[in-house]
Design a protein around this nucleic acid. Structure first.
Lengths: 165, 165
DNA sequence: TATGAAAAGGGGTTGCT
DNA sequence: AGCAACCCCTTTTCATA
């Protein structure tokens, strides 16, 4: 397991992150102005946030409609009961499918929740029959098409970390 | 409705997007080298992609564990049948809840799928009772905690747009 | 009209105080 | 922590095909 415990973030860190979560292209000087601090301080904080892995990555977010990936689907995948060894196998297999942009292990009876993007419903049908259901140990797949994403953000609501109870 | 039809993207656009989806901080010169093109050409393409909205935004992705938002939950929300006017109300209300980072309208009987991040299970309990279930028209909420995110990327698998059939 | 080169400007980065 | 110099990258302009 990687170290993923909360870092100690003060108000300044949080305000910097708030801005960066909206726009990484903001000049350091402007961030400094907005958070009422200095260029040097903000720059050093940003380095710490990046090196400490608080900022995992800085990326371009692409509009899925604009690139012909109009269909977004959530697929609940249930695995056969007696083959728990198949879980890593499933993850390896699913990692090779670039249409799968999220894969969550859920508590409860549904084993995985996948978020998938494809060009069309036909493509999704193909994907399910020829890719997903072919993976060993997959027992049941139930799919829900997302008709619209009224909220779809990468922005996390960061607050000052509470001291551990 | 905003124009969201696929743009015509050639191989060069796609290769640029592939790099930018991983790292927006790459210098134009280096992108040019990697895609075997020139600085000027790549720069102009990037401008078009940004202005055309293909690149929706350029953001910092924050590790939710590192900022104390260790609990990620998917909530299926079912609305009361006879109050379809409540849908926009629901969306407005949910937009005011920063813990909700995604809200999808699904086909079928479940009306909404929400992705929510909170510090702890206790916070989620509070969130459901005092926020989510208080919204008018909400009939039923069923929640699944994500135990782990083995895939969690913003990267879309972009291919050359097929001509419309 | 699209490209390449090169100049000009701004911002990131570093070292010093 | 602040300041300032430096260097690199972005952005613009201009010349060319």
């Amino acid at each position: 397991m990687a170290e993923q415990h909360p870092e100690t973030l003060d108000t300044l860190d949080i305000r910097i992150l708030d801005l960066l979560q909206d726009d990484v292209t903001l000049p350091v000087a402007e961030i400094a102005e907005r958070v009422a601090s200095s260029k040097t301080v903000v720059w050093r904080r940003m380095q710490r946030l990046i090196e400490g892995g608080v900022i995992r990555e800085r990326v371009a977010i692409v509009d899925h409609h604009k690139v012909g990936l109009g269909i977004m689907v959530f697929a609940h995948v249930k695995m056969t009961r007696h083959n728990r060894d198949a879980l890593p196998t499933f993850l390896d297999a699913v990692r090779k499918l670039p249409a799968v942009i999220e894969c969550h292990t859920l508590m409860g009876d549904v084993d995985f929740l996948l978020k998938i993007v494809v060009p069309s419903v036909q493509d999704y049908e193909y994907f399910v029959w020829n890719k997903l259901s072919q993976i060993e140990g997959v027992q049941e797949i139930s799919s829900s098409i997302s008709m619209s994403q009224s909220i779809n953000t990468t922005r996390l609501p960061i607050r000052a970390s509470k001291p551990r109870a």
